[in-house]
């Protein structure tokens, strides 16, 4: 049921993704704010299939030269490509001081025991400005292999970007900035170089009182 209903292929599934700030109020109390979040879900066959977006509509929002989205998509497999539109929650009251940790947690699972490489490219006007590459090994849990990148520290570029974004007085100004801010995540099998998942992230600011929201799409090319 995962196929076509969430960020997954037969080889790897994104189980959870969150970017957050966490403030240590005192030795026993932590306040956590999620900027964006994809929670654990268990789709069934009665759930709707993901809508699709033509990958060519977003080529210019991501690197276009060697190793760019176009080249990656042409190499495939095309069923491993997804687009996530996040409505980010910037409505935080956590004070910004030295006791704040900015982090990203993600979790994947697979029927296969692999070593995966996760590349995350932050792009401005479609050009890569910073890249983080992480390698993760499998842990066998409950009959499947789990890959957990736990509390990976957010880079300075992103922390500064969030600070500046929050200072803008109007949401339409934030959305105007976010129109040219994207992130491309590519997960590969380290040993075979096979592409397992490619997720393109685009953003707006949430207007909800209920935290971050998102829509997920399959990337296709008719």
């Amino acid at each position: 049921a995962w196929q076509g209903r969430c960020i997954a292929t037969t080889k790897l599934r994104l189980v959870e993704f969150s970017a957050f700030m966490e403030h240590q109020q005192d030795p026993d109390t932590y306040n956590k704010h999620l900027f964006v979040h994809i929670g654990q879900s268990n789709p069934t066959y009665s759930d709707a299939l993901l809508e699709s977006v033509d990958v060519r509509q977003i080529y210019d929002k991501f690197p276009e030269k060697k190793g760019g989205l176009k080249e990656l998509y042409e190499k495939g497999p095309s069923n491993a490509f997804f687009l996530v539109k996040f409505w980010a929650d910037l409505n935080t009251t956590i004070p910004d001081d030295v006791r704040v940790f900015y982090g990203v947690t993600s979790q994947y699972e697979s029927p296969d025991n692999m070593t995966i490489t996760c590349s995350s490219k932050v792009c401005s006007f479609g050009k890569q400005v910073v890249e983080k590459v992480e390698t993760e090994y499998a842990r066998f849990e409950n009959g499947r292999f789990v890959y957990r990148i736990h509390r990976s520290p957010m880079c300075e570029y992103l922390i500064n970007f969030i600070h500046k974004l929050k200072q803008l007085p109007e949401k339409y100004m934030m959305n105007s900035v976010l129109e040219n801010f994207t992130i491309l995540q590519v997960v590969t099998n380290r040993d075979t170089q096979e592409l397992l998942l490619c997720i393109a992230y685009v953003f707006e600011v949430s207007t909800s009182e209920h935290g971050a929201q998102h829509h997920t799409y399959r990337l296709i090319k008719d």
Partner: peptide, 24 residues
């Protein structure tokens, strides 16, 4: 936007792309 760049609003994207989901 850079010169020649098409705004996202003018691209062929699903209607849901512009509709923030309501919390379940």
């Amino acid at each position: 936007l850079r010169q020649g760049q098409v705004p996202m609003r003018k691209r062929q994207l699903p209607a849901s792309f512009w509709e923030e989901p309501r919390p379940v």
